[in-house]
Design a protein around this nucleic acid. Sequence first.
DNA 1: TACAGAAATGTATAATTTTGCAATAAAATT
DNA 2: AATTTTATTGCAAAATTATACATTTCTGTA
Lengths: 172, 172
Amino acid sequence: MYNFAIKLDNYTFMKRRSLRHNAIREIITNLAISSQDQLIHKLKEKGFDCTQATISRDLKFLRVYRVADEFGNYVYRLTGEVKKRRQGRLDIRHLTDNIKALEFSDKLALLKTNPGYANSVAIIIDQVEPFEILGTVAGDDTILIVAREGVPRSDVRESVFRIFPGMKNRIR
Amino acid sequence: MYNFAIKLDNYTFMKRRSLRHNAIREIITNLAISSQDQLIHKLKEKGFDCTQATISRDLKFLRVYRVADEFGNYVYRLTGEVKKRRQGRLDIRHLTDNIKALEFSDKLALLKTNPGYANSVAIIIDQVEPFEILGTVAGDDTILIVAREGVPRSDVRESVFRIFPGMKNRIR
DNA sequence: TACAGAAATGTATAATTTTGCAATAAAATT
DNA sequence: AATTTTATTGCAAAATTATACATTTCTGTA
């Protein structure tokens, strides 16, 4: 008699390492862990006893990484995890440095930025709410600016320049 | 005479740090860098001279992280970098679960997702390159889908459903 | 220009992570 | 079961990264 389907909901037969890996996944998705030592302690609470070296290998195996969060603290993340929205203090000058071009096509204005900056730049524009601008849609490195009906390009351009004064200096 | 397209390729007025940040982005997207010392050397080749401490701060600022690659080596990655993950059933399934609505306005289609998922979903659409869809712009929770000229809404809808079959079951 | 405050950086050091190697445990083979 | 092979782990040291503090550079203003 053979087994054709093997059920694995019983953790009893799982290897110790696999169990620990699962525990690690669970811990770092629910808690803000910023060092392997912290992880050791949380694991101990769950009954897993191991050294920091083992954790290091586990994290390597699981492709877990450590990255700065929005508050400037380091946290561990699972690969492929969806990143959270970023809010907070944004430096106009810094953002301006990452704006590459302002172009027009029909009634749309496109603000090109360095990769990853579109959202931050668009947030500023949205906060200012210039009369000339109806709304924006930000991708990764491009912002689509929709002008209010009847507003000419030059006005849109000026309103953007009003928000990011540094841009003017970089036009040749 | 007006400028309708404004180019900003003059980096002269950019802060030193911003320039270095750009260089770092470029280096780690193109090369497999596994330590900050390696990065220092590559930066030196590009004319940026700084210490490891500065790099550490730069990487923290840029939300760059280090993770094990498929060969067991550590490499630096940009946050939000496009992953060349296999496009398996599970991924599609998971993403579909995070799609909330498909709406139309004039010639534009808007795909609403849960926060943070717009980019991942848009990447899939871009990869498939359906004939009906000219391109997409992804924000945080909204994707703007631009249809090819003359393509009716129903065709756009069908092409989206073809990519995310699970949608049909959930969206009326 | 001179000055005050803020931002960026280097130095030295602390904190943290990674790894070679030996020991142990687990799995496979005979 | 005994033996061999492979995988996992701890220990200690090396490698790497983060940060406190001092110094320099930058920015805006009088």
